[in-house]
Simulated scan of single mutants.
Amino acid sequence: MDNQLAAATTQMPDTQTKGMKFSNEKTIAPMSFSKNLEVIFRFLTEKKVDAIPSQNLPIERLTNTQLDELSNDEIHVIKLVHSSVLLKIYGEIWLLDPVFSDRASPVSFFGPKRFHDLPIELKDIKHIDKVLISHNHYDHLDKNTIKHVAQITEQFLVPLGVKSDLIRWGVHENKVIEFDWWQELEVNQGLIAFTPTQHFSGRAISDGNKTLWGSWVIKTANNSIYFSGDSGYFKGFAEIGEKYGPFDLTMIETGAYDKNWSEIHMTPEQSVQAHLDLKGKIMMPIHNSSFDLAFHAWYEPLERVTTAATTKGISLTTPIIGQVLTLSKMPKTTNWWHAFK
């Protein structure tokens, strides 16, 4: 662990920060007071259509026994919630941006509420080898989840600045490794790298951009996986593809987009282009079908990304929540949401 910490952890670099705050490679105009008022006014007055499903969404239930029985010589991928993904990588259990709370919110009684059941309860996961966090927004970094898994997780891989939160929530500091953009960590399975995105961070009014944000590259001897976190479309996808691609699977943000925050979240069409930039083979849309975070219908991201993928001739997989995908034999995509619109 000590060697890994020495290899992967650095001080906050001046090249990424301005006045102890992180910034994107491209200057992104902050949301002005008037823009924030416009968004608030829209949320209060604009009529949403099908923002939440009118019936229960399909789910494949999971147990710890089922996870144990998955083969240890392959990579298995399971979408749990929103952008939360469980990976079984050659026998190890990894969680990406795990959010098991009912709401993506600082409080339990208000804020976006998950509109489907969990495929597996957190208490039923007995051991976790790695937790990877892309950034500290509430729909990606969940305090209650971290507190629950603090004692059963071997390692937490997080962006610069996030470590202090995890320590306050009960994670031992020796378990946490912080990453700057382009930093790499050698692991038993191969290589993990933290790569740029075009986004921002913050969990309160006063802490904007005081922690870093990014995406994850996971490379093994036989396969490469990309996990986008959140991002607007930017040239960095092509740079990541050039350095680490091609990718057997890209898990790319596809949802919660809007004209008012177009530089920090992608439209589905941009998500497909990001997949192409990354030199991806199969794309799995994430960041959808769990929380009402924008003004579009809950199923619109899946509709639009399917159309865009067909137009561009790329392979898409759209699993239902809890469905086990095995990287070596990915199933054909199904438009499961059509029956629940």
Score class of each variant (00 low, 15 high):
residue 147 K to Y: 03
residue 150 A to I: 06
residue 150 A to R: 11
residue 150 A to H: 02
residue 152 I to C: 10
residue 152 I to F: 06
residue 152 I to N: 10
residue 153 T to G: 11
residue 155 Q to G: 01
residue 157 L to V: 13
residue 159 P to G: 09
residue 160 L to M: 07
residue 160 L to W: 06
residue 160 L to H: 10
residue 163 K to D: 00
residue 164 S to A: 15
residue 166 L to P: 05
residue 167 I to S: 06
residue 168 R to N: 14
residue 174 N to E: 15
residue 176 V to Q: 03
residue 176 V to H: 00
residue 177 I to N: 03
residue 180 D to F: 11
residue 182 W to N: 14
residue 185 L to P: 02
residue 189 Q to R: 06
residue 189 Q to S: 14
residue 190 G to T: 10
residue 191 L to P: 11
residue 193 A to S: 11
residue 195 T to M: 08
residue 195 T to A: 10
residue 195 T to R: 06
residue 198 Q to Y: 03
residue 200 F to Q: 04
residue 204 A to Q: 14
residue 204 A to C: 14
residue 205 I to F: 14
residue 206 S to W: 15
residue 208 G to Y: 01
residue 211 T to H: 06
residue 211 T to F: 01
residue 213 W to T: 00
residue 214 G to H: 12
residue 214 G to F: 08
residue 215 S to D: 05
residue 218 I to R: 00
residue 221 A to E: 15
residue 222 N to K: 08
residue 224 S to A: 15
residue 224 S to C: 12
residue 228 S to M: 11
residue 229 G to F: 04
residue 229 G to H: 01
residue 229 G to Y: 10
residue 230 D to L: 08
residue 230 D to G: 12
residue 232 G to Y: 02
residue 232 G to V: 01
residue 237 F to Y: 00
residue 238 A to E: 11
residue 238 A to Y: 03
residue 239 E to P: 03
residue 240 I to K: 01
residue 240 I to N: 07
residue 242 E to S: 14
residue 242 E to I: 01
residue 243 K to E: 15
residue 243 K to V: 00
residue 243 K to D: 12
residue 245 G to V: 05
residue 248 D to V: 09
residue 248 D to E: 10
residue 248 D to F: 07
residue 252 I to F: 05
residue 254 T to Y: 08
residue 256 A to Q: 11
residue 259 K to P: 11
residue 261 W to Q: 09
residue 264 I to S: 03
residue 267 T to R: 04
residue 268 P to W: 01
residue 268 P to F: 10
residue 269 E to L: 09
residue 270 Q to S: 08
residue 271 S to D: 07
residue 273 Q to V: 05
residue 273 Q to M: 02
residue 273 Q to W: 04
residue 274 A to T: 02
residue 275 H to R: 07
residue 276 L to W: 04
residue 277 D to C: 08
residue 278 L to T: 07
